[in-house]
Deep mutational scan, measured.
Amino acid sequence: EPLWIRPDAPSRCTWQLGRPASESPHHHTAPAKSPKILPDILKKIGDTPMVRINKIGKKFGLKCELLAKCEFFNAGGSVKDRISLRMIEDAERDGTLKPGDTIIEPTSGNTGIGLALAAAVRGYRCIIVMPEKMSSEKVDVLRALGAEIVRTPTNARFDSPESHVGVAWRLKNEIPNSHILDQYRNASNPLAHYDTTADEILQQCDGKLDMLVASVGTGGTITGIARKLKEKCPGCRIIGVDPEGSILAEPEELNQTEQTTYEVEGIGYDFIPTVLDRTVVDKWFKSNDEEAFTFARMLIAQEGLLCGGSAGSTVAVAVKAAQELQEGQRCVVILPDSVRNYMTKFLSDRWMLQKGFLKEEDLTEKKPWWWHLRVQELGLSAPLTVLPTITCGHTIEILREKGFDQAPVVDEAGVILGMVTLGNMLSSLLAGKVQPSDQVGKVIYKQFKQIRLTDTLGRLSHILEMDHFALVVHEQIQYHSTGKSSQRQMVFGVVTAIDLLNFVAAQERDQK
Results as ranks from 00 to 15, higher is better:
residue 379 G to R: 12
residue 391 T to V: 14
residue 376 Q to S: 09
residue 334 I to P: 00
residue 475 E to A: 06
residue 384 L to Y: 07
residue 249 A to C: 02
residue 468 H to A: 06
residue 500 L to Q: 10
residue 272 I to E: 05
residue 504 V to S: 08
residue 318 A to S: 14
residue 454 T to E: 10
residue 336 P to C: 07
residue 354 Q to N: 11
residue 275 V to C: 07
residue 429 L to N: 13
residue 275 V to S: 01
residue 261 T to I: 07
residue 422 L to E: 12
residue 277 D to A: 03
residue 306 L to H: 01
residue 381 S to V: 13
residue 359 K to L: 10
residue 266 G to S: 01
residue 426 L to G: 13
residue 262 Y to M: 01
residue 242 D to L: 02
residue 469 F to G: 14
residue 302 Q to R: 12
residue 256 Q to C: 15
residue 338 S to V: 07
residue 478 Q to N: 15
residue 352 M to T: 06
residue 326 Q to H: 12
residue 460 L to G: 05
residue 432 G to A: 13
residue 392 C to H: 04
residue 508 E to F: 15
residue 400 R to K: 12
residue 282 D to A: 07
residue 254 L to M: 07
residue 438 D to A: 05
residue 380 L to R: 15
residue 258 E to H: 13
residue 425 M to N: 08
residue 380 L to M: 14
residue 453 L to F: 15
residue 444 I to M: 13
residue 355 K to G: 06
residue 426 L to P: 03
residue 443 V to H: 04
residue 238 I to V: 15
residue 496 T to Q: 13
residue 266 G to K: 01
residue 420 V to F: 15
residue 251 P to H: 04
residue 396 I to K: 04
residue 443 V to T: 14
residue 261 T to M: 12
residue 374 R to I: 15
residue 240 G to M: 00
residue 264 V to R: 00
residue 252 E to V: 12
residue 296 A to M: 04
residue 277 D to Q: 04
residue 278 R to G: 07
residue 317 V to P: 09
residue 361 E to F: 12
residue 326 Q to T: 11
residue 418 G to M: 04
residue 329 Q to H: 08
residue 361 E to A: 06
residue 306 L to T: 04
residue 437 S to Y: 12
residue 358 L to C: 07
residue 454 T to W: 14
residue 332 V to I: 12
residue 397 E to I: 09
residue 414 G to I: 13
residue 291 E to V: 15
residue 345 K to H: 04
residue 473 V to T: 15
residue 275 V to D: 00
residue 460 L to K: 02
residue 282 D to L: 07
residue 266 G to P: 01
residue 365 E to W: 15
residue 478 Q to F: 13
residue 322 A to K: 02
residue 417 L to Y: 12
residue 265 E to N: 02
residue 283 K to D: 08
residue 323 Q to Y: 12
residue 432 G to S: 05
residue 426 L to T: 10
residue 488 R to C: 06
residue 254 L to R: 08
residue 294 T to P: 06
residue 275 V to M: 08
residue 404 F to H: 07
residue 434 V to I: 14
residue 351 W to Q: 00
residue 250 E to Q: 11
residue 491 V to E: 09
residue 407 A to S: 14
residue 336 P to E: 04
residue 467 D to C: 07
residue 427 S to I: 14
residue 467 D to W: 11
residue 247 I to A: 09
residue 502 N to D: 15
residue 292 A to G: 08
residue 424 N to G: 14
residue 280 V to E: 11
residue 331 C to T: 01
residue 509 R to M: 15
residue 245 G to K: 01
residue 450 Q to A: 07
residue 356 G to H: 07
residue 263 E to K: 13
residue 314 T to V: 13
residue 243 P to Q: 01
residue 364 T to P: 10
residue 447 Q to E: 15
residue 437 S to M: 13
residue 450 Q to T: 10
residue 409 V to C: 12
residue 305 L to W: 00
residue 289 D to W: 03
residue 409 V to D: 03
residue 281 V to C: 10
residue 350 R to H: 12
residue 416 I to A: 10
residue 281 V to Q: 01
residue 397 E to Q: 14
residue 384 L to G: 08
residue 351 W to A: 02
residue 479 Y to G: 12
residue 271 F to R: 00
residue 473 V to F: 15
residue 436 P to M: 10
residue 338 S to E: 08
residue 446 K to H: 13
residue 368 P to C: 08
residue 302 Q to S: 12
residue 440 V to R: 02
residue 369 W to F: 09
residue 333 V to K: 01
residue 303 E to R: 02
residue 386 V to C: 15
residue 413 A to N: 14
residue 432 G to H: 14
residue 376 Q to F: 08
residue 400 R to M: 08
residue 397 E to R: 13
residue 275 V to G: 02
residue 282 D to R: 14
residue 458 G to K: 09
residue 412 E to W: 09
residue 325 L to G: 03
residue 358 L to I: 03
residue 506 A to V: 04
residue 419 M to D: 14
residue 288 N to V: 07
residue 296 A to K: 04
residue 240 G to H: 00
residue 408 P to F: 03
residue 362 D to Q: 11
residue 440 V to A: 09
residue 271 F to H: 03
residue 492 F to H: 13
residue 266 G to F: 02
residue 459 R to E: 07
residue 358 L to Q: 08
residue 301 A to H: 09
residue 468 H to V: 05
residue 319 V to G: 06
residue 317 V to Y: 05
residue 292 A to F: 02
residue 489 Q to A: 12
residue 278 R to P: 04
residue 320 K to Q: 14
residue 243 P to W: 00
residue 473 V to P: 08
residue 486 S to Y: 13
residue 259 Q to V: 11
residue 396 I to D: 09
residue 338 S to H: 08
residue 428 S to A: 12
residue 408 P to R: 02
residue 369 W to A: 11
residue 363 L to V: 10
residue 357 F to E: 02
residue 295 F to S: 14
residue 285 F to H: 11
residue 421 T to D: 07
residue 498 I to D: 15
residue 251 P to V: 07
residue 470 A to P: 08
residue 252 E to D: 14
residue 486 S to I: 14
residue 430 L to Q: 05
residue 349 D to K: 07
residue 512 K to M: 12
residue 318 A to F: 02
residue 511 Q to G: 14
residue 311 A to W: 03
residue 412 E to N: 08
residue 403 G to L: 04
residue 428 S to T: 14
residue 414 G to L: 10
residue 319 V to K: 04
residue 355 K to D: 02
residue 440 V to N: 12
residue 417 L to R: 12
residue 256 Q to T: 08
residue 391 T to C: 10
residue 451 I to P: 15
residue 401 E to K: 14
residue 315 V to W: 02
residue 352 M to H: 01
residue 337 D to Y: 00
residue 354 Q to M: 09
residue 388 P to N: 08
residue 382 A to F: 14
residue 477 I to A: 15
residue 291 E to R: 15
residue 356 G to Q: 07
residue 315 V to I: 11
residue 442 K to H: 13
residue 337 D to V: 00
residue 374 R to V: 09
residue 255 N to S: 04
residue 446 K to I: 08
residue 301 A to W: 09
residue 304 G to Y: 00
residue 440 V to I: 15
residue 483 G to P: 12
residue 337 D to E: 03
residue 331 C to M: 07
residue 409 V to W: 00
residue 379 G to S: 12
residue 476 Q to A: 10
residue 293 F to A: 00
residue 276 L to D: 01
residue 341 N to L: 01
residue 306 L to P: 04
residue 500 L to N: 00
residue 494 V to A: 13
residue 469 F to Y: 15
residue 267 I to Q: 02
residue 509 R to S: 12
residue 348 S to T: 14
residue 313 S to Q: 06
residue 489 Q to V: 15
residue 459 R to L: 09
residue 317 V to S: 06
residue 441 G to T: 04
residue 431 A to T: 13
residue 337 D to I: 02
residue 440 V to T: 05
residue 331 C to S: 03
residue 449 K to P: 05
residue 418 G to W: 06
residue 294 T to R: 10
residue 348 S to V: 09
residue 429 L to M: 15
residue 435 Q to W: 10
residue 407 A to C: 14
residue 478 Q to A: 12
residue 417 L to W: 09
residue 265 E to R: 00
residue 342 Y to W: 03
residue 346 F to N: 04
residue 268 G to N: 00
residue 279 T to V: 11
residue 396 I to H: 13
residue 454 T to C: 14
residue 315 V to K: 07
residue 280 V to A: 15
residue 395 T to F: 05
residue 359 K to R: 14
residue 386 V to P: 07
residue 410 V to R: 15
residue 406 Q to D: 02
residue 489 Q to P: 12
residue 438 D to S: 14
residue 351 W to V: 00
residue 314 T to H: 09
residue 388 P to V: 13
residue 441 G to C: 07
residue 352 M to C: 02
residue 240 G to I: 00
residue 394 H to G: 11
residue 371 W to S: 09
residue 385 T to C: 06
residue 291 E to I: 07
residue 307 C to F: 04
residue 394 H to Y: 15
residue 427 S to E: 04
residue 379 G to D: 14
residue 337 D to G: 00
residue 276 L to Q: 01
residue 335 L to S: 05
residue 285 F to E: 08
residue 415 V to W: 14
residue 264 V to L: 06
residue 338 S to T: 10
residue 421 T to C: 07
residue 401 E to H: 14
residue 428 S to R: 06
residue 285 F to M: 04
residue 303 E to K: 04
residue 367 K to H: 05
residue 470 A to T: 15
residue 320 K to S: 13
residue 495 V to C: 14
residue 499 D to I: 03
residue 353 L to M: 15
residue 381 S to N: 08
residue 320 K to N: 15
residue 460 L to N: 01
residue 367 K to E: 14
residue 312 G to A: 00
residue 374 R to Y: 03
residue 279 T to S: 12
residue 419 M to C: 15
residue 485 S to I: 12
residue 345 K to F: 00
residue 418 G to I: 02
residue 244 E to F: 07
residue 494 V to D: 02
residue 434 V to D: 13
residue 342 Y to T: 03
residue 450 Q to P: 04
residue 308 G to C: 01
residue 380 L to A: 13
residue 303 E to M: 01
residue 397 E to F: 14
residue 417 L to V: 15
residue 319 V to N: 04
residue 451 I to R: 11
residue 296 A to I: 01
residue 245 G to T: 03
residue 400 R to T: 04
residue 387 L to R: 14
residue 301 A to T: 04
residue 256 Q to K: 12
residue 273 P to Q: 00
residue 438 D to P: 11
residue 362 D to F: 14
residue 373 L to W: 06
residue 352 M to K: 06
residue 435 Q to L: 14
residue 358 L to G: 05
residue 337 D to W: 02
residue 360 E to I: 14
residue 346 F to Q: 04
residue 379 G to H: 12
residue 458 G to C: 13
residue 264 V to D: 01
residue 330 R to C: 15
residue 390 I to C: 11
residue 388 P to S: 15
residue 483 G to E: 15
residue 297 R to Q: 04
residue 312 G to F: 00
residue 377 E to M: 11
residue 328 G to Y: 07
residue 351 W to C: 04
residue 480 H to V: 11
residue 341 N to Y: 01
residue 309 G to Q: 00
